[in-house]
């Protein structure tokens, strides 16, 4: 749609915060409008990247699961990871991408815990790769309003 959704949301956020909230009484409602504006601003910032960051992350986590093959993980976990690694992001609706992301990140927790408890260079390398992906995951989600 035109004008672009993110531009519309960002404009609404700026108007709510800068023009409307200061004229509202009582202060509690003004603050609620200000926070609603902040929420719209965060949605606006995340809008354009919403699908791409999920696809990028899902691919990265599936790659970690493929790297885990042959590590000697417990059979149930190994099978679960193998199945998830075969998944795809053909359905580009955000709800579908998010559902896939949640399943992958839940399994990533189990993989990480298992790898931490393992000895050997391969396990250490995968552990380091998981940490790098976790760091990257926070970079993908960064918002300008965040303090850190």
């Amino acid at each position: 749609m035109k004008p672009d959704e993110n531009l519309v949301l960002a404009d609404f956020a700026a108007r709510f915060a800068g023009e409307i909230a200061p004229q509202v009484q009582p202060a509690y409602l003004a603050a609620a409008i200000g926070m609603s504006a902040g929420i719209l601003g965060m949605i606006a910032e995340d809008w354009d990247r919403s699908a791409s960051r999920r696809v990028e992350e899902n691919r990265a986590v599936r790659g970690l699961f493929r790297d885990a093959a042959g590590l000697g993980l417990e059979a149930g976990l190994a099978a679960r990871l193998a199945a998830l690694a075969e998944g795809n992001d053909d359905d580009l609706r955000l709800s579908a991408l998010e559902a896939g992301n949640e399943a992958l990140r839940a399994a990533l927790i189990d993989l990480h815990a298992a790898v931490e408890a393992m000895e050997g260079a391969a396990a250490k390398a995968l552990n380091d790769a998981i940490w790098r992906e976790l760091s990257a995951s926070t970079q993908r989600r960064r918002l300008s309003a965040g303090s850190f």
């Binding site: 949640e102 990140r105 839940a106 990533l108 927790i109 990480h112 815990a113 976790l134 995951s137 926070t138």
Partner: peptide, 8 residues
């Protein structure tokens, strides 16, 4: 949603 950083 799962929280892999905090679980670690």
């Amino acid at each position: 949603t799962p929280q892999p950083v905090i679980r670690a």
